[in-house]
Protein backbone atom coordinates (compact mmCIF):
# COMPACT_ATOMS: atom_id res chain seq x y z
CA UNK A 1 0.00 0.00 0.00
CA UNK A 2 2.81 2.37 0.89
CA UNK A 3 4.32 1.82 -2.52
CA UNK A 4 1.04 2.78 -4.22
CA UNK A 5 0.73 5.96 -2.18
CA UNK A 6 4.27 6.84 -3.10
CA UNK A 7 3.47 6.22 -6.75
CA UNK A 8 0.60 8.67 -6.54
CA UNK A 9 2.86 11.25 -4.94
CA UNK A 10 5.35 10.83 -7.74
CA UNK A 11 2.62 11.03 -10.36
CA UNK A 12 1.55 14.34 -8.83
CA UNK A 13 5.12 15.59 -8.88
CA UNK A 14 5.53 14.61 -12.53
CA UNK A 15 2.25 16.32 -13.33
CA UNK A 16 3.46 19.58 -11.80
CA UNK A 17 6.69 19.38 -13.76
CA UNK A 18 4.91 18.53 -17.01
CA UNK A 19 2.35 21.29 -16.56
CA UNK A 20 4.85 24.04 -15.81
CA UNK A 21 6.08 24.79 -19.35
CA UNK A 22 2.48 24.90 -20.53
CA UNK A 23 1.53 27.15 -17.65
CA UNK A 24 4.36 29.59 -18.32
CA UNK A 25 3.55 29.89 -22.02
CA UNK A 26 -0.18 29.92 -21.36
CA UNK A 27 0.11 32.76 -18.85
CA UNK A 28 2.20 34.73 -21.33
CA UNK A 29 -0.35 34.25 -24.06
CA UNK A 30 -3.06 35.21 -21.60
CA UNK A 31 -1.42 38.60 -21.08
CA UNK A 32 -1.33 39.00 -24.88
CA UNK A 33 -4.90 38.08 -25.31
CA UNK A 34 -6.18 40.20 -22.47
CA UNK A 35 -4.78 43.13 -24.43
CA UNK A 36 -6.74 41.93 -27.45
CA UNK A 37 -3.93 40.31 -29.39
CA UNK A 38 -3.81 36.66 -30.46
CA UNK A 39 -0.31 35.51 -31.23
CA UNK A 40 -0.41 32.12 -32.93
CA UNK A 41 3.38 32.26 -33.09
CA UNK A 42 3.78 30.64 -29.67
CA UNK A 43 5.28 27.50 -31.15
CA UNK A 44 7.87 29.54 -33.06
CA UNK A 45 8.76 31.80 -30.16
CA UNK A 46 9.22 28.81 -27.89
CA UNK A 47 11.48 27.11 -30.42
CA UNK A 48 13.68 30.16 -30.87
CA UNK A 49 13.82 30.67 -27.12
CA UNK A 50 14.57 27.01 -26.46
CA UNK A 51 17.67 27.08 -28.61
CA UNK A 52 18.79 30.54 -27.46
CA UNK A 53 18.29 29.67 -23.83
CA UNK A 54 20.07 26.38 -24.23
CA UNK A 55 22.99 28.05 -25.98
CA UNK A 56 23.26 30.71 -23.29
CA UNK A 57 23.12 28.16 -20.49
CA UNK A 58 25.66 26.04 -22.30
CA UNK A 59 28.08 28.89 -22.83
CA UNK A 60 27.79 30.41 -19.37
CA UNK A 61 27.10 27.27 -17.36
CA UNK A 62 24.29 29.10 -15.58
CA UNK A 63 20.71 28.07 -16.18
CA UNK A 64 19.29 31.39 -15.01
CA UNK A 65 21.27 33.17 -17.70
CA UNK A 66 19.67 30.64 -20.02
CA UNK A 67 16.15 31.49 -18.85
CA UNK A 68 16.89 35.19 -19.23
CA UNK A 69 18.25 34.65 -22.73
CA UNK A 70 15.20 32.57 -23.57
CA UNK A 71 12.92 35.34 -22.34
CA UNK A 72 14.84 37.89 -24.40
CA UNK A 73 14.71 35.70 -27.49
CA UNK A 74 11.00 35.08 -27.04
CA UNK A 75 10.39 38.80 -26.67
CA UNK A 76 12.53 39.55 -29.73
CA UNK A 77 10.56 37.07 -31.81
CA UNK A 78 7.33 38.53 -30.45
CA UNK A 79 8.48 42.01 -31.42
CA UNK A 80 8.46 40.98 -35.09
CA UNK A 81 4.88 39.88 -34.63
CA UNK A 82 4.00 43.01 -32.69
CA UNK A 83 5.52 45.36 -35.22
CA UNK A 84 3.79 43.69 -38.14
CA UNK A 85 0.38 43.27 -36.58
CA UNK A 86 0.18 46.50 -34.58
CA UNK A 87 1.97 49.00 -36.78
CA UNK A 88 1.57 47.48 -40.22
CA UNK A 89 -1.96 46.22 -39.48
CA UNK A 90 -1.31 42.72 -40.74
CA UNK A 91 -3.79 40.00 -39.87
CA UNK A 92 -2.92 38.63 -36.43
CA UNK A 93 -3.70 35.03 -37.27
CA UNK A 94 -1.63 35.06 -40.45
CA UNK A 95 1.27 36.83 -38.81
CA UNK A 96 1.31 34.45 -35.88
CA UNK A 97 1.28 31.45 -38.18
CA UNK A 98 4.12 32.97 -40.14
CA UNK A 99 6.09 33.39 -36.94
CA UNK A 100 5.44 29.76 -36.00
CA UNK A 101 6.78 28.56 -39.33
CA UNK A 102 9.70 30.96 -39.27
CA UNK A 103 10.59 30.00 -35.70
CA UNK A 104 10.66 26.31 -36.52
CA UNK A 105 13.04 26.83 -39.42
CA UNK A 106 15.14 29.50 -37.79
CA UNK A 107 15.68 27.57 -34.55
CA UNK A 108 16.73 24.46 -36.48
CA UNK A 109 19.08 26.56 -38.55
CA UNK A 110 20.87 28.41 -35.77
CA UNK A 111 20.67 25.49 -33.37
CA UNK A 112 22.43 22.82 -35.38
CA UNK A 113 25.65 23.49 -33.49
CA UNK A 114 24.01 22.83 -30.14
CA UNK A 115 22.45 19.46 -30.85
CA UNK A 116 24.01 16.77 -28.72
CA UNK A 117 25.63 19.26 -26.37
CA UNK A 118 25.56 18.60 -22.68
CA UNK A 119 24.65 21.09 -19.97
CA UNK A 120 26.20 21.25 -16.53
CA UNK A 121 23.38 20.01 -14.40
CA UNK A 122 22.27 21.82 -11.33
CA UNK A 123 20.86 19.80 -8.49
CA UNK A 124 17.23 20.44 -7.67
CA UNK A 125 17.13 20.84 -3.92
CA UNK A 126 13.44 21.46 -3.40
CA UNK A 127 12.11 23.44 -0.50
CA UNK A 128 14.08 22.82 2.69
CA UNK A 129 11.98 21.59 5.57
CA UNK A 130 8.98 20.79 3.42
CA UNK A 131 10.77 18.43 1.06
CA UNK A 132 10.94 15.67 3.64
CA UNK A 133 7.27 15.67 4.60
CA UNK A 134 5.63 12.32 4.01
CA UNK A 135 3.64 12.21 0.75
CA UNK A 136 3.53 15.99 0.34
CA UNK A 137 7.31 16.24 0.19
CA UNK A 138 7.86 14.06 -2.86
CA UNK A 139 4.57 15.17 -4.40
CA UNK A 140 4.96 18.92 -4.17
CA UNK A 141 8.17 20.19 -2.67
CA UNK A 142 11.02 18.69 -4.67
CA UNK A 143 10.60 20.66 -7.84
CA UNK A 144 12.66 23.02 -9.91
CA UNK A 145 12.30 26.66 -8.75
CA UNK A 146 10.53 27.57 -12.01
CA UNK A 147 7.65 25.31 -11.03
CA UNK A 148 6.99 27.51 -8.00
CA UNK A 149 7.75 30.62 -10.01
CA UNK A 150 4.96 29.70 -12.42
CA UNK A 151 2.52 29.58 -9.51
CA UNK A 152 3.77 32.89 -8.16
CA UNK A 153 3.50 34.35 -11.64
CA UNK A 154 -0.10 33.29 -11.88
CA UNK A 155 -0.84 35.09 -8.62
CA UNK A 156 1.12 38.14 -9.77
CA UNK A 157 -0.76 38.31 -13.08
CA UNK A 158 -4.11 37.91 -11.35
CA UNK A 159 -3.18 40.72 -8.98
CA UNK A 160 -2.01 42.84 -11.89
CA UNK A 161 -5.18 42.30 -13.88
CA UNK A 162 -7.69 42.83 -11.14
CA UNK A 163 -5.97 44.96 -8.52
CA UNK A 164 -3.83 47.46 -10.37
CA UNK A 165 -4.63 50.44 -12.51
CA UNK A 166 -2.29 49.33 -15.29
CA UNK A 167 -4.00 45.98 -15.33
CA UNK A 168 -7.32 47.68 -15.76
CA UNK A 169 -5.92 49.75 -18.62
CA UNK A 170 -4.54 46.62 -20.27
CA UNK A 171 -7.88 44.88 -20.01
CA UNK A 172 -9.78 47.87 -21.32
CA UNK A 173 -7.42 47.99 -24.30
CA UNK A 174 -8.45 44.41 -24.95
CA UNK A 175 -12.13 45.10 -24.45
CA UNK A 176 -12.46 48.32 -26.34
CA UNK A 177 -9.34 49.74 -27.92
CA UNK A 178 -11.27 52.61 -29.44
CA UNK A 179 -12.53 53.93 -26.14
CA UNK A 180 -9.11 53.43 -24.57
CA UNK A 181 -7.65 55.39 -27.47
CA UNK A 182 -10.24 58.10 -27.02
CA UNK A 183 -9.29 58.32 -23.35
CA UNK A 184 -5.74 59.01 -24.47
CA UNK A 185 -4.09 55.67 -23.79
CA UNK A 186 -1.39 54.62 -26.28
CA UNK A 187 -3.21 51.49 -27.38
CA UNK A 188 -0.55 50.17 -29.71
CA UNK A 189 2.25 50.65 -27.20
CA UNK A 190 0.28 48.94 -24.48
CA UNK A 191 -0.48 46.08 -26.82
CA UNK A 192 3.15 45.89 -27.84
CA UNK A 193 4.16 45.68 -24.19
CA UNK A 194 1.68 42.84 -23.71
CA UNK A 195 2.98 41.07 -26.82
CA UNK A 196 6.55 41.39 -25.57
CA UNK A 197 5.58 40.10 -22.13
CA UNK A 198 3.81 37.18 -23.78
CA UNK A 199 6.83 36.45 -25.92
CA UNK A 200 9.13 36.62 -22.92
CA UNK A 201 7.05 34.10 -20.97
CA UNK A 202 6.77 31.77 -23.96
CA UNK A 203 10.53 32.20 -24.10
CA UNK A 204 11.01 31.13 -20.49
CA UNK A 205 8.79 28.16 -21.20
CA UNK A 206 10.86 27.14 -24.23
CA UNK A 207 14.06 27.57 -22.27
CA UNK A 208 12.66 25.49 -19.40
CA UNK A 209 11.97 22.69 -21.87
CA UNK A 210 15.47 22.70 -23.32
CA UNK A 211 17.44 23.51 -20.17
CA UNK A 212 15.59 21.69 -17.40
CA UNK A 213 12.97 19.38 -18.72
CA UNK A 214 14.60 17.52 -21.62
CA UNK A 215 17.42 18.74 -20.92
CA UNK A 216 18.80 19.10 -24.40
CA UNK A 217 18.17 20.88 -27.66
CA UNK A 218 17.08 19.23 -30.87
CA UNK A 219 15.03 20.72 -33.68
CA UNK A 220 11.29 20.23 -33.47
CA UNK A 221 11.42 19.61 -29.72
CA UNK A 222 8.57 21.99 -28.91
CA UNK A 223 6.39 19.43 -30.72
CA UNK A 224 3.04 21.19 -30.46
CA UNK A 225 3.32 22.44 -26.87
CA UNK A 226 2.87 26.03 -28.04
CA UNK A 227 -0.47 25.16 -29.55
CA UNK A 228 -1.56 23.46 -26.38
CA UNK A 229 -0.66 26.61 -24.47
CA UNK A 230 -2.83 28.61 -26.85
CA UNK A 231 -5.67 26.20 -26.23
CA UNK A 232 -5.21 26.71 -22.50
CA UNK A 233 -6.19 30.37 -22.64
CA UNK A 234 -9.54 29.44 -24.15
CA UNK A 235 -9.95 26.62 -21.63
CA UNK A 236 -9.34 29.06 -18.91
CA UNK A 237 -11.83 31.58 -20.28
CA UNK A 238 -8.97 34.03 -19.94
CA UNK A 239 -8.53 33.70 -16.17
CA UNK A 240 -5.01 33.28 -14.77
CA UNK A 241 -5.79 30.65 -12.14
CA UNK A 242 -7.64 28.52 -14.64
CA UNK A 243 -4.70 28.68 -17.05
CA UNK A 244 -2.53 27.18 -14.36
CA UNK A 245 -5.13 24.57 -13.51
CA UNK A 246 -5.58 23.68 -17.17
CA UNK A 247 -1.84 23.29 -17.60
CA UNK A 248 -1.67 20.84 -14.70
CA UNK A 249 -4.70 19.01 -16.01
CA UNK A 250 -3.04 18.60 -19.37
CA UNK A 251 0.26 17.60 -17.79
CA UNK A 252 -1.68 15.14 -15.67
CA UNK A 253 -3.38 13.51 -18.65
CA UNK A 254 -0.02 13.18 -20.40
CA UNK A 255 1.64 11.57 -17.40
CA UNK A 256 -1.37 9.41 -16.64
CA UNK A 257 -1.42 7.84 -20.09
CA UNK A 258 2.29 6.98 -19.76
CA UNK A 259 1.64 5.65 -16.26
CA UNK A 260 -1.23 3.47 -17.45
CA UNK A 261 1.00 2.07 -20.18
CA UNK A 262 3.61 1.17 -17.61
CA UNK A 263 0.92 -0.56 -15.60
CA UNK A 264 0.15 -2.65 -18.66
CA UNK A 265 -3.31 -1.33 -19.45
CA UNK A 266 -4.49 -2.95 -22.65
CA UNK A 267 -5.45 -0.07 -24.90
CA UNK A 268 -3.67 0.41 -28.22
CA UNK A 269 -0.85 2.83 -27.61
CA UNK A 270 -1.93 5.17 -30.38
CA UNK A 271 -5.21 5.74 -28.60
CA UNK A 272 -3.31 6.38 -25.39
CA UNK A 273 -1.17 8.94 -27.17
CA UNK A 274 -4.31 10.60 -28.53
CA UNK A 275 -5.61 11.26 -25.02
CA UNK A 276 -4.00 14.66 -24.46
CA UNK A 277 -5.23 15.96 -27.82
CA UNK A 278 -8.69 14.47 -27.51
CA UNK A 279 -9.09 15.79 -24.00
CA UNK A 280 -8.09 19.22 -25.28
CA UNK A 281 -10.90 19.05 -27.81
CA UNK A 282 -13.38 17.79 -25.25
CA UNK A 283 -12.54 20.47 -22.74
CA UNK A 284 -12.71 23.12 -25.46
CA UNK A 285 -16.17 21.91 -26.35
CA UNK A 286 -17.34 21.82 -22.77
CA UNK A 287 -15.96 25.26 -22.02
CA UNK A 288 -17.18 26.89 -25.21
CA UNK A 289 -20.61 25.38 -25.56
CA UNK A 290 -22.30 28.34 -23.92
CA UNK A 291 -21.55 31.22 -26.30
CA UNK A 292 -22.72 33.75 -23.80
CA UNK A 293 -20.25 32.49 -21.23
CA UNK A 294 -17.42 32.78 -23.75
CA UNK A 295 -18.54 36.19 -24.93
CA UNK A 296 -18.67 37.44 -21.37
CA UNK A 297 -15.14 36.32 -20.70
CA UNK A 298 -13.37 36.77 -24.00
CA UNK A 299 -11.63 40.09 -24.52
CA UNK A 300 -14.02 41.74 -26.94
CA UNK A 301 -11.45 42.99 -29.43
CA UNK A 302 -9.51 39.70 -29.51
CA UNK A 303 -7.81 39.16 -32.84
CA UNK A 304 -9.13 42.36 -34.39
CA UNK A 305 -6.76 44.87 -35.89
CA UNK A 306 -6.82 48.27 -34.24
CA UNK A 307 -6.45 51.37 -36.40
CA UNK A 308 -5.78 54.48 -34.38
CA UNK A 309 -7.70 57.47 -35.50
CA UNK A 310 -10.04 55.58 -37.72
Amino acid sequence: MGAKVNEIALLLAATLAAGTPLALAGLGLLVNERAGVVNLGAEGMMAIAAVTGFAAAFLTGNEWVGFAAGAAAGAAAASIFGWLSLWLYTNQYATGLALSLFGAGFSAFVGSGYVGKNLERSVVAGIPGLRDLPFLGPALFRQHPLVYLAIALMAAIAWFFYRTRSGLVLRSVGESPDSAHALGYPVRRIRMAAVLAGGALCGVSGAYLSIVYAPMWVEGMIAGRGWIALALTVFATWRPARVLLGAYLFGGVTMLQLHLQGMGVQVPLQFMSMLPYLSTVVVLVVISRDPLWIRLNMPASLGKTFHPGS
Binding site: G44, T95, A98, G105, F109
Partner: peptide
Protein backbone atom coordinates in the same frame (compact mmCIF):
# COMPACT_ATOMS: atom_id res chain seq x y z
CA UNK B 1 21.87 22.55 -43.79
CA UNK B 2 18.32 21.35 -44.42
CA UNK B 3 16.85 23.87 -41.99
CA UNK B 4 17.57 26.73 -44.37
CA UNK B 5 14.43 26.01 -46.36
CA UNK B 6 12.26 26.69 -43.35
CA UNK B 7 14.04 29.97 -42.74
CA UNK B 8 13.37 31.13 -46.29
CA UNK B 9 9.73 30.13 -46.12
CA UNK B 10 9.28 32.08 -42.91
CA UNK B 11 11.05 35.14 -44.28
CA UNK B 12 8.95 35.02 -47.43
CA UNK B 13 5.67 34.90 -45.54
CA UNK B 14 6.62 37.58 -43.02
CA UNK B 15 7.86 39.97 -45.68
CA UNK B 16 4.80 39.33 -47.78
CA UNK B 17 2.54 40.23 -44.88
CA UNK B 18 4.53 43.39 -44.33
CA UNK B 19 4.40 44.34 -48.01
CA UNK B 20 0.68 43.67 -48.20
CA UNK B 21 0.16 46.56 -45.84
Amino acid sequence: PSAITGVFQGVLLLSLLACDT
